[in-house]
Design a protein around this nucleic acid. Structure first.
Length: 594
DNA sequence: TGCGCTAGCGCC
DNA sequence: AAAGGGCGCTAGCGCA
């Protein structure tokens, strides 16, 4: 399929008006059919409604359409992918609703078109998800949740147009409308990337995976139960406690009791706590935990559930986390342990181009805070933490990294605090920026990224008194929660703790959320740049992408990634000298990258 | 049997 | 070196 590169029939005009005129709405019409119509710049209907046999047919017929507006990409895209139809751009109304609601300082049911419609019409807002009963299921107790249906008698296309037109208007009322438009476009592109990536899947060698399981865990016994290596380690742990002891390492209570019998008091069986203890059981226990984790989370049953025909197909959820980061459903795609990456192998004649953005957090902080010193450090050499350590930590890279992450995460104790003081002296604007984000959160004010992605407001159960919705939400409001009613007893302490937690959350948000903005724009740009190649995006994890491509395309792919990263930085942070370089490797096997 | 909870740990 | 921010997932347990 040809991808329109520039001028095409009827459209050499590059004005926004002309582009908007080529937006079309698409809504289901029953039986797989869809109804489509052109839109005017304000989001209203600009021409007759047509009915098409399927979304794929509509997209094929609508070659001049610049952007498809629909309820949710996840609803339409499976049909398109099955038919092999690619969409250039879309506008996902439910993804946009989530961002706009957040920007407006409102919470709740962001992902449902019916809820948005109800708000517009002043009707009771339905819940976000609702139980769905499958008729084929004989068990009436088996329910699962699904998207909320529109009320009876409401036409899906009418509902879509009504909500979309209101969104266009709300976008114009955003603090920075042009930035919000960019964010909405980026988030929508993200939904396309997410679906395509899940569809393509990560090339996965079940054979190599099984080999490494056998190598690390030993063989499985015929009667089921734990693999050999785990059984051996369990015996070793027990023996370390005494000749007739039996301690089951995966039962925390068992382990704690065993240590207590030997006079060793532990608050938990966490690995970092165990490491502080001098006892012969510790070493095999730690090895057991490591391997048990592999066995349960990425072992044989994981392989059976998630890998088919040489591909691992995760379901990505763009913006699934409060910070705007993506999450996944099932398969734990964003937590693939390093050892298992040996099983990720390119097809014959292909390579995996693995690109990892270098030291994302400090670069983001430099860009958003515009701290002159930190911006200079961000460009002085490849490894930012080394540069940082030379400026402020007498060459100790580890300390420099810890101090910076401590500032971003809201560290409250330990060496980090002393290091934080050093950081504050050298980079006052950077530290002040995250401090201000924390204070805003504690006072119940809204906290946003440059593009306008906004930290969700305090939840009701989160403790403390949430900011009164009616009291305004601008940065200038907020007497804070300091004077909440109630006696200064335990409840007061709990509320104070919740307020501080909120501060850490918003402190982190300005960095993590801004990184999420950058990442989704980078993905959007990369998707477009790869459109004319045989390369496919197969994996994304916060600040890392994997592109699976013919060996001869690796250089082009590297260039595309770098260009997409540069473009995303300009878009997400405005005019900034801060660069966001990638470490890129073209490898046969994921484990060989970096 | 299913649900909600905690503990623990993988990734960024 | 310390144990903080964001997540998903599994196992085990108590409860209905």
């Amino acid at each position: 399929m040809t991808n329109g590169t520039g001028a095409r029939a009827g459209g050499a005009h590059g004005t926004r008006r002309a582009r908007d005129a080529r937006r079309w709405a698409l809504a289901p019409a029953g039986g797989g059919r869809v109804r489509v119509c052109p839109l005017d710049p304000r989001g209203g209907r600009a021409g007759p409604v047509r009915t098409e046999e399927s979304a794929a047919a509509a997209v094929r017929a609508g070659q001049g359409v610049a952007r498809w507006v629909w309820r949710a990409t996840a609803e339409v895209q499976p049909g398109l992918l099955a038919a092999g139809v690619r969409v250039e751009r879309c506008y996902d109304v439910e993804a946009a609703e989530a961002l706009l609601l957040g920007h407006e300082g409102r919470a709740g049911d962001p992902h449902a078109l019916p809820a948005a419609l109800a708000r517009l019409r002043g009707l009771p807002v339905p819940p976000d998800r609702q139980p769905v009963h499958r008729e084929t299921d004989p068990q009436p107790s088996l329910f699962e949740t699904g998207p909320v249906p529109l009320p009876d008698g409401v036409d899906p296309l009418d509902a879509l147009l009504e909500v979309y037109a209101a969104q266009v208007e709300r976008t114009e009322r955003a603090e920075h409308p042009e930035r919000m438009r960019l964010l909405l476009a980026g988030e929508s592109a993200g939904t396309l990337v997410a679906g395509e990536m899940g569809h393509a899947g990560v090339p996965w060698s079940a054979e190599i995976h099984r080999e490494l399981l056998a190598e690390l865990l030993g063989e499985r016994y015929a009667g089921g139960g734990l693999p050999r290596r785990l059984v051996e380690l369990e015996e070793e742990v027990s023996r370390a406690f005494g000749p007739h002891e039996r301690v089951r390492p995966d039962l925390a209570a068992d382990v704690l009791q065993a240590f207590a019998r030997q006079g060793i008091r532990l608050g938990s069986t966490r690995a970092w706590e165990l490491r502080k203890v001098d006892h012969p059981a510790v070493e095999p226990l730690l090895r057991y935990k490591k391997l048990y984790r592999l066995y349960t989370a990425h072992g044989w049953s994981w392989l059976r559930s998630w890998v088919r025909e040489g591909r691992f197909h995760p379901e990505y959820v763009p913006g699934g986390a409060a910070s705007g980061r993506w999450t996944t459903n099932g398969g734990g795609a964003l937590q693939i342990p390093k050892v298992v990456r040996r099983a990720v192998v390119a097809d014959p004649g292909r390579r995996l181009v693995v690109a990892d953005a270098d030291q994302m957090e400090p670069r983001v902080l430099a860009a958003v805070s515009r701290d002159p010193g930190l911006m200079a450090v961000a460009n002085s050499e490849r490894d930012l933490y080394t540069a940082l350590s030379k400026r402020a930590f007498s060459g100790d890279r580890g300390q420099a990294k810890l101090a910076l992450l401590g500032a971003v995460y809201g560290q409250t104790s330990g060496d980090g605090l002393r290091n934080l003081a050093a950081l504050r002296r050298r980079f006052p604007a950077a530290v002040a920026y995250v401090d201000e984000a924390a204070r805003a959160g504690e006072e119940g004010r809204l906290v946003r990224t440059h593009l306008g992605r906004t930290c969700p407001p305090v939840g009701r159960e989160e403790g403390g008194a949430p900011a009164d919705e009616s009291s305004g939400t601008g940065p200038e409001t907020g007497e804070g929660f300091a004077g909440t009613d109630g006696e200064p007893g335990q409840a007061g302490a709990r509320a104070a703790g919740a307020v501080r937690a909120r501060g850490r959350f918003t402190r982190n948000f300005v960095v993590q959320g801004s990184a999420a903005d950058w990442a989704v724009l980078m993905l959007a740009g990369l998707r477009q740049r790869l459109a004319d190649l045989a390369a496919e995006l197969v994996f994304f994890q916060h600040d890392e992408v994997i592109v699976h491509c013919p060996t001869e395309e690796t250089d082009l792919v590297r260039e595309a990634i770098d260009a997409a990263g540069r473009q995303a930085a300009r878009a997400a942070f405005g005019d900034t000298p801060v660069r966001f370089p990638f470490t890129t490797a073209a490898v046969r096997c994921y484990a060989d990258a970096k």
